[in-house]
Amino acid sequence: MYKKVIGFGVLIVLIALMITNYIDQQKVEEEESNLYDVTGDTGAQGAMISSGDTTGIEVGETAPNIELETVDGETFSLTDLRGKKVILNFWATWCPPCREEMPEMQKFYDEHKDEVEVVAVNLSDTENNLQDVPDYISQYGYTYPIPMDKEGTVASAYSVITVPTTYFIGTDGVVQQARKLGPMDYEFMEEMVEALN
């Protein structure tokens, strides 16, 4: 009888452990499924960084100026790029879709940098460690400008709530295409830039 009671007790403990493990696994899967769908739009991909105004800078509005230090320690000003078309991207090292699009952005930059500037503003206030940014850039050899938004002021001015987010700015400094939420590929960048003046 004593062996049956012990056996029954062990069986109860094992069942309880299985149920607890199952519940924990469900929570992890739910959290992972929310890594990309942060907008409620099943077509959008990105990672949420903050709440706020979701409309962003509208087509036809002048892009707010950006004055930040780059990852290389240089001063960057968006107004210095007037006369060039600009792809203005917002990203973070912890964002998988950002990592996905960055090689495409480098390829586009390498082939079009004479007429189009690719700028990738790092949301440095969301990084775990600021050193992650130069380490990541160096590891993959990205050469386009990387301004560091250490206070989150530029992300706020552009109403960036998901990353990556990209704006397309014409030679006149005006946003000329609807912003893109989620990763871009080379063909998409070509299409957007062709429509800029």
Results as ranks from 00 to 15, higher is better:
residue 73 G to P: 02
residue 49 I to G: 03
residue 34 N to C: 12
residue 44 A to L: 14
residue 46 G to K: 01
residue 49 I to E: 06
residue 77 S to R: 13
residue 54 T to M: 14
residue 36 Y to H: 09
residue 47 A to M: 15
residue 106 Q to S: 11
residue 39 T to Y: 05
residue 83 G to C: 05
residue 81 L to N: 01
residue 74 E to S: 11
residue 108 F to W: 05
residue 73 G to V: 08
residue 108 F to P: 00
residue 36 Y to T: 04
residue 36 Y to Q: 05
residue 86 V to R: 04
residue 38 V to S: 02
residue 53 D to N: 11
residue 28 V to H: 13
residue 77 S to F: 09
residue 69 E to T: 12
residue 28 V to A: 14
residue 83 G to Y: 02
residue 59 V to R: 01
residue 29 E to L: 08
residue 47 A to V: 12
residue 58 E to N: 12
residue 101 E to F: 04
residue 46 G to A: 07
residue 82 R to Q: 15
residue 53 D to F: 07
residue 34 N to H: 15
residue 86 V to A: 06
residue 45 Q to K: 10
residue 74 E to C: 10
residue 53 D to Q: 07
residue 46 G to S: 03
residue 103 P to F: 02
residue 54 T to E: 15
residue 106 Q to M: 11
residue 74 E to R: 09
residue 72 D to I: 12
residue 50 S to F: 11
residue 95 C to E: 03
residue 65 N to L: 10
residue 93 T to V: 08
residue 86 V to E: 03
residue 53 D to T: 08
residue 53 D to L: 00
residue 44 A to E: 14
residue 38 V to C: 03
residue 65 N to P: 09
residue 89 N to I: 03
residue 103 P to W: 03
residue 48 M to V: 13
residue 37 D to S: 14
residue 105 M to R: 06
residue 61 E to P: 07
residue 70 T to H: 06
residue 62 T to M: 05
residue 92 A to G: 09
residue 69 E to R: 08
residue 37 D to E: 14
residue 104 E to K: 02
residue 57 I to R: 00
residue 68 L to F: 05
residue 107 K to R: 15
residue 30 E to S: 12
residue 62 T to A: 10
residue 59 V to H: 05
residue 68 L to H: 03
residue 96 P to G: 01
residue 65 N to K: 09
residue 51 S to N: 15
residue 108 F to N: 02
residue 44 A to T: 13
residue 48 M to K: 15
residue 71 V to D: 01
residue 94 W to D: 00
residue 64 P to F: 07
residue 97 P to H: 01
residue 36 Y to N: 08
residue 43 G to P: 07
residue 91 W to A: 06
residue 57 I to S: 07
residue 86 V to D: 01
residue 46 G to F: 06
residue 104 E to M: 05
residue 95 C to G: 04
residue 43 G to H: 09
residue 71 V to R: 00
residue 86 V to W: 01
residue 62 T to H: 08
residue 84 K to E: 13
residue 83 G to Q: 03
residue 37 D to P: 10
residue 28 V to Q: 14
residue 73 G to L: 05
residue 70 T to A: 05
residue 76 F to R: 03
residue 84 K to W: 11
residue 35 L to G: 04
residue 90 F to V: 04
residue 106 Q to R: 11
residue 46 G to T: 03
residue 104 E to R: 08
residue 37 D to G: 15
residue 66 I to H: 00
residue 48 M to P: 10
residue 80 D to C: 09
residue 74 E to Y: 10
residue 54 T to G: 14
residue 38 V to P: 04
residue 80 D to F: 10
residue 72 D to N: 13
residue 37 D to H: 14
residue 107 K to S: 13
residue 61 E to I: 06
residue 56 G to D: 05
residue 56 G to R: 01
residue 75 T to K: 13
residue 74 E to W: 09
residue 73 G to Y: 05
residue 93 T to L: 01
residue 108 F to T: 01
residue 29 E to T: 11
residue 108 F to V: 06
residue 48 M to E: 14
residue 102 M to D: 00
residue 37 D to L: 15
residue 56 G to F: 02
residue 32 E to R: 15
residue 69 E to M: 11
residue 86 V to P: 00
residue 44 A to K: 12
residue 95 C to S: 07
residue 103 P to C: 02
residue 106 Q to F: 08
residue 40 G to S: 09
residue 64 P to L: 08
residue 62 T to N: 09
residue 81 L to R: 02
residue 65 N to I: 10
residue 42 T to L: 14
residue 98 C to R: 01
residue 48 M to F: 13
residue 74 E to D: 13
residue 63 A to F: 04
residue 100 E to V: 08
